[in-house]
């Protein structure tokens, strides 16, 4: 893929695009774990629209994986034209470690470059043996919870922050109590997969755990693909507003000559058509009109933002996830 892009960019530089590739443009979207299904539909829809608008054939490649790993690959030279990752921190890394895009990338598209949002919910087994309604039910003794590892998974970081933030709010801002809560919660997790998809497999195929903490869209995907009869989605009263952002990777897009189409691709996500697709795949749409139409699909719940509770990703990362941070401290106690 990368090689193809490189060959293509050389062709463009020679001004021979039409002869070399027959008017085919290719675009690489490096994304995080649970967006496979959503972006394969977006790619088809946008290619069609682009063909109608410009007459060019557009081939969009997609790569999925743990958010941080994907960002690292792009820094190391996987030449993505656009990135659509789980959290802003990983796109910040593209600026900090690779100078691939400017520091203010998040101001370039509406809603802090988040065309859709999501949240963190629970999935339980339908047998009704375990009743779970709220976060504090997850730390009951004897309950086994499945969630990915915050060190490797972006979704897992949102999960951790959702649990911590809820405990903070319930205890009127008492950080020690919130820390105790996440410590007890992670004591109940017998296996932490590398990414969100891995945890879904552990919970559904290997039948480990009573509760899976998951992205809202991933939970719905399980319901649709594996069967509604076997699992139930539980919406806790309060959770975090997860904001997965998107960005054009300036350096690579410039080299490939795909800046215009890359930006159009991301802007397409904000159009009613793109927003409909997002809603269909259970991402919360940013556009009010579409959100209202799908209000029934997204039960009302109190959603707090990262900014409101943790300040910024930089701070959250340093205090909670970096080596020696709170997550390490609570993990050490179980060694």
């Amino acid at each position: 893929m990368t090689r193809f892009c490189r060959i293509l960019s050389v062709c463009l530089a020679l001004g021979a695009a039409a002869h070399c590739a027959g008017g085919t443009i290719s675009l690489l979207n490096v994304s995080y774990d649970p967006t496979r299904e959503f972006y394969s539909e977006v790619n088809a829809a946008f290619s069609k629209e682009w063909k109608a608008r410009t007459g060019d054939d557009l081939k969009i490649g997609i790569s999925n994986g743990g958010s941080a790993k994907q960002a690292r690959d792009v820094i190391a030279g996987s030449e993505a034209d656009v990135v659509t990752l789980a959290l802003a921190w990983d796109i910040d890394a593209l600026h900090e470690h690779g100078q691939l895009l400017p520091a203010d990338w998040q101001q370039r598209l509406p809603n802090n470059s988040c065309p859709y949002t999501s949240t963190i919910v629970f999935l339980t087994r339908h047998d009704g043996k375990i009743k779970v309604k709220d976060w504090e039910d997850l730390i009951r003794p004897g309950i086994s919870v499945v969630a990915p590892n915050p060190k490797t998974s972006g979704g897992a970081r949102w999960i951790y922050l959702a649990a911590y933030g809820d405990a903070l709010k319930k205890n009127h801002g008492d950080a020690a109590a919130a820390r105790r809560f996440v410590e007890q919660l992670y004591h109940n997790i017998p296996v932490m997969d590398e990414g969100a998809r891995g945890s879904v497999t552990t919970f559904t195929q290997r039948e480990i755990g009573d509760v899976l903490i998951s992205w809202e869209n991933e939970a719905w995907l399980v319901m649709e693909k594996i069967g509604r009869g076997r699992f139930d989605i539980i919406y806790p009263p309060r959770s975090i507003l997860a904001e997965p952002p998107v960005a054009v990777v300036d350096k690579y897009a410039k080299a490939h000559g795909t800046e215009a189409v890359a930006e159009a691709y991301l802007r397409f996500l904000y159009t009613p058509a793109g927003q409909e697709l997002a809603a269909k795949h259970h991402f919360r749409p940013e556009l009010d009109a579409v959100a209202r139409q799908h209000a029934a699909d997204f039960p009302p719940m109190e959603l707090f933002t990262l900014r409101e509770v943790f300040g910024s990703w930089k701070e959250a990362q340093k205090i909670h996830f970096d080596e020696g941070g709170i997550f390490d401290q609570i993990s050490r106690s179980r060694r």
Binding site: A68, K69, R72, A93, Q317, D322, E323
Partner: peptide, 11 residues
């Protein structure tokens, strides 16, 4: 791998 995921290349 975990340190790489935190962009801690030195570590």
């Amino acid at each position: 791998v975990m340190r790489l995921d935190q962009y801690d290349y030195t570590g």
